[in-house]
């Protein structure tokens, strides 16, 4: 259970990293990620079924997310539409696009990818024990299609930690690349844009270009996360991106609470840690929540409530004597719960 929490949490952390880029670094709220997450998954699984090697499928999924970000960016900057509305428009369009890409509401990840038509359970399962009967007959062997099988998934879904290692390696690679990028001149300009949007124009940089670039990178990460999530869970679904922005924000806030004093590589670890923590809390709530009458379907409500509480608490904390008031409130709650 812990391993799968870490695995899913880290994948969701990559999505939260995209949310972190738009909400914190760019300071440009974007709702595209509900669409780009599902788009990444849909493109990956659909291209996998068409026989494209899995690594390229992941790349295509991430690029799909980037394209969604580009669309939002252009609508926001060229048509002067609020970034939130631009994101909602793109997200709505992506829903229909995903149905077309998958030719239905969902699509399973094949265990065998081949250029030939898949005909039987043996093809899907990668062969049966009966195949061994013919193994000693050399040329007489009935086609097992081993020559046309390609690695169809980067995850083996075994609890041996290999998936987790792979996910952590991918995530560390992303953080490293993103960290270096944010140090470059263009990365610095993106951070500057989030810090003071109007001033960047004074230094000869188009704020429209920076907004579009930031949205493209953020949604590329979300698309990549969706792609990995689909491969990990074994399917892509048109609904898989629903409320992703809320999940991403909750993960981000959790990470920021945990790493409030530590700011390594522009705070890029916070969304990842938050993603894992979010997944842990979600799993605990699903497993033990029934004792206090919670249903699995209540999780979205709880996530949104968590965000509202965090925003409320941080608002109080920034007010005069806010921290004292908060401590007093917590102490009062604690003593009430004891009695």
């Amino acid at each position: 259970m812990i391993i799968s929490i870490l695995e899913i949490g880290t994948i969701l952390g990559i999505m939260a990293l995209g949310v972190y880029l738009t909400f914190r670094i760019l300071d440009l709220p974007d709702l595209t990620c509900d669409g780009s997450f599902a788009l990444g998954g849909a493109i990956t699984v659909a291209s996998l079924l068409s026989g494209i090697p899995v690594v390229y499928c992941i790349f295509l999924g991430a690029m799909g997310g980037a394209l969604a970000g580009l669309a939002t960016g252009l609508i926001h900057t060229r048509l002067k539409v609020n970034s939130l509305l631009a994101g909602i428009l793109v997200m709505t369009m992506i829903y229909s696009i995903n149905l077309r890409i998958m030719n239905g509401p969902n699509l399973p990840v094949p265990r065998v990818s081949s250029n030939e038509e898949i005909q039987s359970f043996e093809d899907l399962s990668g062969g049966t024990k009966l195949d061994d009967l013919f193994s000693d007959f050399g040329e007489m062997k009935v086609s097992t299609k081993s020559d046309i099988k390609v690695q169809s998934n980067i995850f083996n879904n075994e609890k041996d930690g290999s998936d987790l290692t792979l996910i952590i390696l991918i995530t560390c690679g992303i953080i490293l690349v993103l960290g270096i990028f944010l140090r470059t001149d263009i990365g610095m300009a993106i951070r500057a844009f989030g810090s003071n949007k109007n001033a960047v124009q004074s230094f000869g940089i188009s704020k429209n270009v920076l907004a579009v670039l930031g949205l493209v990178i953020a949604n590329l990460l979300v698309g990549l996360s969706g792609s990995l999530f689909a491969l990990y869970s074994g399917f892509a679904d048109v609904q898989m991106g629903q409320s992703m922005i809320v999940t991403g924000l909750a993960a981000l806030m959790l990470g920021e609470i945990i790493l409030s004093k530590i700011n390594i590589i522009y705070g890029l670890f916070a969304p990842i840690i938050g993603g894992i923590l979010y997944q842990l809390l979600l799993s605990l709530a699903i497993k033990y929540g029934y004792r206090i009458g919670l249903l699995a379907s209540d999780m979205k409500l709880l996530t949104a409530l968590f965000i509202i509480i965090v925003i409320g608490v941080s608002l109080v904390a920034t007010q005069k004597d806010g921290k004292k008031k908060l401590k007093k409130g917590v102490k009062k709650l604690w003593s009430n719960s004891k009695t």
């Binding site: 470059t184 263009i186 300009a189 500057a192 230094f203 000869g204 940089i205 188009s206």
Partner: peptide, 11 residues
């Protein structure tokens, strides 16, 4: 650094 250069930034 940002102010010392005018125009678009690169990698």
């Amino acid at each position: 650094i940002l102010a010392s250069k005018k125009g678009m930034r690169y990698l």
